[in-house]
Amino acid sequence: MEKSLQRQSIRNDVRKKRRALTPAQQQQYALTISQRVMTHPRVMDAAQLAIFLSFDGELDTGPLIAALRLAGKQVYLPVLHPFTPGHLLFLRYDSHTPMVTNRLHIREPRLDVTRLLPIERLDILFTPLVAFDDTGQRLGMGGGFYDRTLMHWHRRLDGPLAIGLAHDCQQVDAIPAERWDIPLQEIITPSHHWRW
């Protein structure tokens, strides 16, 4: 139980820090991340990338999504699986994609199986996170969606490269990991790029 309380305490502290960022800071960090990501060799070679729409003070992915589209990449967004609770699907996203608000109050594409891409066909999977440490351990919101998504693809050469995107203020000394936590292969912040 103590580990669970520690994890929730970290979530609360880091969410306060990222919500305290000013709109000008958010804009600057979003542009910096976009520039950093677009020069990543794996991103430059990638054709199909999944990313998230920012929520609750997360790093604004808007400029990066625009840059990916401009570079001719196919962009996909996560959608809550309608029949398998706790799992994600990935749907193609463009300027004409009909959007809905899911039960977690996050915008996502309206379910359309013709726009669905199996995870194994993704080249890159950008993940949100609440906090991270210098071992690649990520702490999410607690739903386990990305841990379940990455469970079968973690460090496999035939799966997507998982890259976390975060503000620098989201780094903590250590995350008390649970057995189901899947560490990330890379994390990019406005000032650093970690690889494991």
Rank of each mutant, 00 (worst) to 15 (best):
L122N: 09
A47F: 02
H81L: 03
W196N: 13
S9E: 14
T97F: 00
P41D: 09
D94G: 07
V130I: 02
I106E: 05
T39L: 13
H81V: 01
P23E: 06
S95W: 10
Q26R: 15
I163P: 08
D158I: 04
L150N: 05
R156V: 09
Q74D: 14
T97D: 01
Q74Y: 13
R7S: 07
I182L: 07
E120L: 09
I10Q: 02
P23K: 07
G57M: 06
L139R: 08
E186S: 12
T101F: 03
L125S: 12
P176W: 03
Q48K: 14
M99A: 03
P98G: 01
R15H: 01
G136N: 09
I182V: 15
R179P: 12
D60Q: 02
R19W: 06
L157Q: 15
L116E: 11
R110W: 04
Q6M: 13
K73Y: 04
L88G: 05
K16P: 10
R156T: 14
H105S: 15
L111H: 06
T32I: 11
F83W: 12
T127L: 07
I188D: 02
V14G: 06
D60M: 05
L64R: 04
R138K: 05
L88E: 03
V37I: 13
R115F: 03
P118Y: 07
D181S: 06
R156S: 10
K17S: 13
H154D: 09
T32W: 07
V113Y: 15
V75Y: 05
L184N: 01
M141D: 03
L150S: 09
F145L: 08
Q25D: 10
D134K: 14
W194V: 05
V113E: 15
S95E: 15
F90A: 03
R15Y: 03
Q185N: 10
P118V: 10
V100S: 12
V130K: 04
V79R: 08
L91A: 04
M38C: 10
W153S: 11
I10K: 02
L150K: 09
G159C: 00
H152Q: 14
D112I: 00
R103Y: 07
Q48E: 12
E186W: 08
S191Y: 04
C169D: 01
A177N: 03
P41I: 07
L89W: 10
P190I: 01
I188H: 01
T135Y: 13
V79A: 06
A50L: 05
F132N: 04
K16C: 10
G62K: 12
Q170C: 06
L129Y: 01
T135I: 13
V14W: 06
P85D: 12
R19F: 06
R121Q: 15
P98M: 03
M99Y: 02
G86E: 06
